[in-house]
Simulated scan of single mutants.
Amino acid sequence: MQILKTTSYYGILLAFIALICTALSTGIYFLTKNKIDSEIEKQQQQRLTEVIPQKYYDNDLLSSCSDSTIETIKTENINKICTAKKNGKITAYAFETIAPDGYSGNIRLLIGLSPVGEVLGVRVVEHQETPGLGDKIDLRISDWILSFTNKIITPNDQSEWAVKKDGGKFDQFAGATITPRAVVNQVKNSSLAMLKHIQEKELNRSTLEK
């Protein structure tokens, strides 16, 4: 009987402690949630500004973002698209895409692109590439990623969009060609897919207006 009382006592005590811990965790979550959400939003806005300069838009760029549902561009791992507008006119797009063939796995990219095919900026959002080698795609390590800025891409100049080892115009890294090759190829393929989508969208709009 004494054993049963002792067991019940400790069971109730543990349940009480668990309840207090849960209440504390819940309270901390609600106290910090708004601040965390605000910081995440600031980071997202900063990234968008890095690939689409402020002069290109006067709309709320972050609120214009939506998940991609169009199959022709989802095939190029384009997951989210944001639309920049100036005076009501579309001036650029920012979109997230994934290079699936990095040396250490997926490389998440954010790309800014004008409707005429000018790459306004590229940033690496997430990667797991080798420190000291493949991580040079990260702007904190190297300015290599800036080599995409203001480059024009069209279906007719695809051969230039490769690392120099493959006959293109982009530098590779000493001892690490796979990583920059993956990034260059994905910027090229996803940008061409976006351009095709933009042109088809414009064609459909023009047809409806006639």
Results as ranks from 00 to 15, higher is better:
10 Y>N: 12
11 G>N: 01
13 L>I: 08
16 F>E: 08
16 F>A: 13
18 A>C: 13
20 I>F: 10
21 C>Y: 14
23 A>D: 06
27 G>L: 12
28 I>H: 00
29 Y>P: 01
30 F>D: 11
30 F>C: 06
30 F>I: 12
35 K>D: 14
41 E>C: 05
43 Q>H: 06
43 Q>R: 11
44 Q>Y: 11
47 R>A: 13
48 L>H: 08
51 V>K: 03
52 I>C: 09
52 I>P: 02
60 D>P: 04
60 D>A: 11
63 S>P: 04
66 S>C: 11
67 D>C: 08
67 D>P: 06
71 E>D: 15
71 E>A: 15
72 T>D: 14
73 I>Y: 04
74 K>I: 10
74 K>A: 10
79 N>L: 15
81 I>K: 01
83 T>N: 07
87 N>R: 10
90 I>H: 05
95 F>M: 11
99 A>P: 04
105 G>M: 07
108 R>E: 15
109 L>A: 06
110 L>A: 02
111 I>T: 04
111 I>A: 01
112 G>R: 04
120 L>S: 04
122 V>A: 08
124 V>M: 02
128 Q>A: 15
129 E>M: 04
130 T>D: 05
130 T>Q: 05
130 T>P: 00
131 P>H: 03
133 L>K: 00
134 G>C: 03
134 G>I: 01
135 D>I: 01
137 I>D: 07
137 I>R: 06
141 I>V: 15
154 T>I: 10
156 N>K: 14
156 N>F: 12
157 D>H: 09
162 A>G: 05
167 G>P: 07
171 D>H: 02
172 Q>K: 10
172 Q>L: 08
178 I>Y: 02
181 R>N: 06
186 Q>R: 09
188 K>W: 07
191 S>D: 01
193 A>D: 06
194 M>V: 10
195 L>Q: 05
199 Q>E: 15
203 L>T: 15
205 R>Q: 13
206 S>V: 12
207 T>H: 10
